[in-house]
Each structure stands twice: as C-alpha cells, then as structure tokens.
Design a protein around this nucleic acid. Structure first.
Lengths: 110, 110
DNA sequence: TTCATACATCGGCAATTATCGATGGATTGA
DNA sequence: TCAATCCATCGATAATTGCCGATGTATGAA
C-alpha cells in the first residue's frame, strides 16, 4: 500500500460519521446494508450522508452493489488489512521488536 | 481504546506532514528526533510544523522530552497498537474469520 | 547580564470540509 | 403510463483546517 493510498483511507476513517458507518458495515458482513439503512443510522440528511459514503467508496473501504432500486453497501476488509499492514511495516522496518507486542496482542484478540 | 480516541489518532495521522513525521519517528526509535530535525525534514516553516506536532502529541502518538533547549520527540508505539486493536476488534466481534487473514499477514510481516 | 538558539503560541488569511435543501436519474409498483 | 421510492449530484453557506509571519518564553553560551 502506497503512502498516498494510506492517507486516503486514514482520512476516510477520520470522521465520526464515516468511522461509525464503516464499523457498522463490518459488523453486518457479509450481508451489507442499504444506503437508506446507513442514512437512518447516521441521523444526517440523505445528501449529507451520501457525500460521506462517496468518500468511503473512493478510499475503497466500501463496495457498493446495485440491488433493485437500492444500493447495498459492503465493507472491504482487504483495504483495512492493507492499512494495518502499512502502519505495522513502519515498526518492523525500524525495529522488529516494536512490532512483536503489537502482533502478539492482535493474535489473541480473535 | 474508545471511539473518540481512535478518531483523534486517525485524524492526527490523516495528513501527509503528520504521517510522514510519525513514520520518521518510528524509524528513529528509540533515539527520537529533535523538533528542529523534523521541521527540516518537513520543508514547512517552524511554526506550521509546530502546530502539526501539537496534534500528534495531543493524540498521544508522540511523546516529547526536554533535552537542554531542544525537545526530543519520540513515537509512542502503544497508541499505534491501540488503534490497530481498535480497528481489528470490529472485524473480530463481527466475524472472527474476517480477522484471521489480517492477523496471519501481520504475523509474518515481522 | 546579554545575546543567540530552540521551540511554542498568536493573529490573520486562503483553502478545504461539512452540512443542508433542492434537483435529477433510475427503478419499481399501480 | 404515472407516481413513488432510492439514491447521487448540484449550489450555497458556515465551520474547520492549513499555512504563514510575528511575537513570546525558556535555555545555554559568551
């Protein structure tokens, strides 16, 4: 993952509405949620949320699928994984021992 | 890690200058770098970079230490780890199998 | 003490972002 | 066909962010 792409993903997640929507989508995998359901959960207007959603989609964090007249949104876990690898790599390349406790905690978190 | 704190960390990292500075500090662990060295590397003015640095410090990502008349900045890996755990938890709580490939890749990255 | 260095903070300005209501295109059902 | 639903896009406005130069504070050197 390139630094510019990581920045896009970080920026996309660095907003309460978008972080909340993304987490909601992760939890609703693999079914996803319609845009309307996400709008309702956000408490914002439809247009405002739509622009936030476009940012998540633009960063690759969310993959929309057409279903009838509504759009089903699904979280793209791979992009999240890429972001975490990008951040972890900084530790590893600098000093591997910095990364070990990180991986250790991640391993037993699941 | 609370959602608000995660947002602070994400916002702090979601800027090219700040992401670059943080990565630079991770790579220079455990010695750290002086503020002046970071300013030079950023290419920005001293005051502009100082405000960026304040955001990193505010998010807990950077820990400043006084040394004579200069400040030594050090990366705080724990906060990065907390952020990654926060993000990973979303996958785990929703569906553990989403998290497995993530941890697998992280494990052999170091 | 006096001057120079290292860094933080202040004030102002330009650019970006977040929000809304309104409009428009596509799809479904009557 | 016609009306309703779902969602994206447009245009405007208020708030936030990023940047700079100037000023302020603390430390170290002469």
């Amino acid at each position: 993952m390139k630094s510019t792409s990581a920045l896009d993903v970080l920026s996309a997640l660095a907003h309460p509405t978008r972080l909340d929507a993304f987490r909601r989508l992760v939890r609703s995998e693999p079914d996803g949620l319609s845009t309307g359901q996400l709008v309702d959960a956000s408490g914002l207007t439809q247009s405002t949320f739509s622009s936030h959603l476009a940012i998540l989609v633009g960063a690759g964090l969310v993959l929309p699928e057409k279903r009838g007249r509504q759009m089903i949104q699904r979280a793209n876990i791979e992009v999240l994984r890429d972001l975490m690898l990008f951040l972890a790599k900084d530790c590893c390349e600098g000093r591997a021992e910095l990364c070990e406790p990180l991986v250790a905690e991640l391993s037993h978190c699941c």
